[in-house]
Design a protein around this nucleic acid. Structure first.
Length: 637
RNA sequence: GCUGCCGUAGCUCAGUGGUAGAGCACUCCCUUGGUAAGGGAGAGGUCGUGAGUUCAAUCCUCACCGGCAGCACCA
């Protein structure tokens, strides 16, 4: 006798082993029909798993969140089965469930074409209709290797070879398809349903290593029902409308062109936005005790040899060709320049911490495939700063930086900022003792402040560990924005010192930090975050004065002048067009405020104020409207 | 950088082995109209670049440049 405890606390006793499927049937026929898998003492298992001892058991149905993951994993297997049926020469590799869907990596001599996706998807639907039973089999490792090698599946064999010898492994069989898999799976292919869609085709390196051959990856999405699938596809469409590359074009903010891949041509409106961000940051930094500097963009090679960039970063750097044959590099980072400013003259411990900010434009030769609108460019402006401090001050300075970043992000409405901690990379300078100390400082700063963080092993800068502050774009891609790095290596290399209370020279610690990170990237994130509808203080064109008839032209210009005098960026629209047309056009252009004036307003010295997104207007006295808007246009405290 | 796809008017896109088309935007004319597109006319492209095949290339082939998706990279 043994007892199975169900989630509602009820207990069922059995005197012989019972499978998940039988258990579900015992509980009720409805549950038997919808059962997909079982959770036994916290572990997810196939429905066919036999229970023969006391256990906590729950039956998984499509209503459970985890069911979706199983379903997506099954979708990957069904896709692999379809591919093997249609293209038998293809080798299968791996196919996991991922956020919103699944993928499977295939190896085959001729690449898939987009049209193939339709065929594969159609075959998948057939396999679902066949409702093939999905059966788990336990195999001896070596037999499994031999089996897959005999099938010509060398990737599968390679995966199994990396499993320790003597261990049994599980294979899942459905119809004529058999795959190495840890499971669990749904009971049959019919359970997958048809709420799936193959989305895109892409290359992916075998085992994620660019030295390996490239496989063909097919991505798909899968959901428990059609409604969810449709909602997801619709959400993707909506996200596309927020894409900063699209909005940048529509709103005339910036452009790119062939002659300067990965470098932005900022148009007047985009540049206004950019400058607003700089002005805001300048004020925040000033309040936080920073001074501002500016250092050369082009400096001699020797400086970069000293800094270590020549050895560790050269392939990402631009160089100049000049008559004097001296080798200059265009700066990829601001730190060496900042150090020169610190080193100029003798610094005392009384000067520390010294916080030197620089809106420095840097150039990095990024891999062509990495370029992505404003998010990943080859020339960008950092809101950089280097904080020179003593070892004792390091921790507090780190906390101040983290506090400042989070506070600033809040002003833009970013509440869920993810923080990642990256420790020492393989390619680095400096001793392990120093790295221990630096990594400790960053971690304890976060822990003191109670922030949760993720961990990126080996992803630090070559001179020190770092924190990354990650924001997500409209399409769901994550981008590192703010960063904080602690460094005792560059100060060593450049022999940076200060005179301490003991009259001796000591080595300061250097913090590298950027809050927006790259102004270009942050601007891109903001465009998507606000879907182009910027708050008044950021909007490049804050208001348009639109006339109803030309009788109001003179008054409209007066209104415009009053708004400009109050510091607002605005335009007058006196065109010979109907007010409907003007309202539509400026709404589409996402101008936050429209001040409509006709004969009535001109006589009464009022304006009809219409805000973006609303369809009502408010009649205000001119002075009142100007004062209100000027107040709203001030940047956040 | 790697794999695949793509590159036609300012923008979004259609199209053909015999030197190109739509909508929007633009210019001009009519219209002065109260809150999301009033009407008419006009102008605008060496079809990404270079080579090749062909009597003939925007269309076929190759290379290069650039873009998109993913992978790898992201100090």
């Amino acid at each position: 006798m043994f007892a199975i405890t169900l989630p509602d606390g009820s207990v069922r006793s059995y005197d012989k082993p019972v499978s998940g499927r039988e258990l579900a049937a015992d509980i009720g026929p409805g549950l038997a029909r919808s059962a997909l898998a079982v959770r036994i003492d916290g572990t997810l298992r196939d429905l066919a798993t036999v229970i023969d001892r006391d256990a906590q058991v729950s039956i998984l149905t499509p209503r459970d969140a985890e069911a979706l993951e199983l379903l997506r994993h099954d979708a990957a297997h069904v896709m692999a089965e379809a591919v093997k049926e249609l293209y038998p020469e293809t080798q299968v590799t791996i196919g996991p469930a991922i956020e919103n869907g699944f993928y499977y990596d295939f190896a085959r001599p001729t690449p898939f074409q987009p049209e193939d996706l339709e065929r594969i998807e159609a075959r998948m639907r057939e396999i679902v209709d066949r409702d093939e039973e999905i059966v788990c089999e336990t195999w001896d490792r070596d037999e499994a290797i031999a089996f897959f090698l005999a099938q010509g599946e060398k990737y599968k064999a390679e995966i199994i070879e990396s499993i320790p010898a003597g261990q049994n492994i599980t294979l899942y069989r459905q119809g004529g398809f058999i795959d190495l898999c840890r499971g669990p799976h749904l009971p049959s292919t019919g359970r997958l349903g048809k709420a799936f869609k193959l989305m895109k085709l892409a290359g992916a390196y075998w085992r994620g290593d660019s030295r390996n051959e490239m496989l063909q990856r097919i991505y798909g999405t899968a959901w428990t029902d059609e409604k969810q699938l449709k909602a997801y596809l619709q959400q993707l469409e909506e996200a596309e409308k927020r894409d900063h590359r699209r909005l940048g074009k529509e709103m005339d903010l910036f452009h790119f062109q062939e002659e300067a891949p990965g470098a932005v041509f900022w148009h007047p409106k985009g540049w206004t936005l950019f400058q607003r961000l700089i002005a805001y940051m300048r004020r925040r930094q000033h309040e936080a005790g920073y001074v501002e500097i500016s250092t050369p963009e082009v400096m001699d090679r020797q400086l970069w040899v000293t800094s270590g960039h020549w050895d560790t970063f050269r392939e990402h750097m631009y160089f100049t060709q000049t008559e004097d044959e001296r080798v200059y590099a265009i700066k990829p980072m601001n730190c060496p320049g900042g150090i020169q400013v610190f080193k100029h003259g003798i610094k005392s411990y009384r000067d520390l911490p010294l916080r030197m900010a620089e809106f420095g434009k840097v150039h990095r030769y990024e891999p062509s495939g990495a370029l992505h609108g404003l998010m990943r460019v080859r020339a960008f402006t950092q809101d950089d700063a280097h904080i020179f401090c003593t070892l004792d001050q390091m921790q507090e300075e780190c906390q101040k930086v983290v506090g400042l970043i989070m506070d600033i992000y809040r002003d833009f409405g970013f509440e869920d900022v993810r923080i990642k901690f990256s420790d020492r990379p393989a390619k680095r300078i400096g001793s392990d003792e120093v790295w221990d100390r630096l990594e400790g400082a960053l971690k304890s700063a976060l822990e003191h402040m109670g922030y949760e963080y993720g961990y990126n092993p080996g992803e630090g800068a070559f001179y020190g560990p770092k924190l990354e502050f990650v924001l997500r774009d409209a399409i769901g891609r994550d981008w590192q924005c703010g960063t904080l790095q602690v460094d005792m290596n560059l100060t060593e290399r450049f022999d940076v010192t200060y005179v301490a209370e003991d009259g001796q020279r000591h080595r300061p610690v250097m913090l590298h930090r950027a809050l927006f990170g790259s102004l270009e990237r942050f601007t891109g994130i903001l465009i998507e975050h606000y879907a182009g509808r910027f708050p008044l203080w950021l909007a490049p064109l804050q208001a348009v004065v639109a006339t109803i008839t030309s009788d109001a032209d003179a008054y409209a210009l007066e209104v415009l002048a009053a708004l400009k005098a109050a510091g607002l960026d605005c335009e007058a629209d006196l065109r010979n067009e109907k007010i409907n047309y003007k309202v539509r056009e400026h709404s589409v252009a996402k101008v936050p405020v429209m001040l409509v004036v006709g004969r009535r307003e001109a006589e009464e010295r009022t304006v009809a104020l219409r805000r973006l997104g609303g369809n009502t207007q408010e009649i205000l006295a001119l002075e009142e409207a100007v004062a209100t808007l000027a107040g709203e246009a001030a940047s956040p405290a």
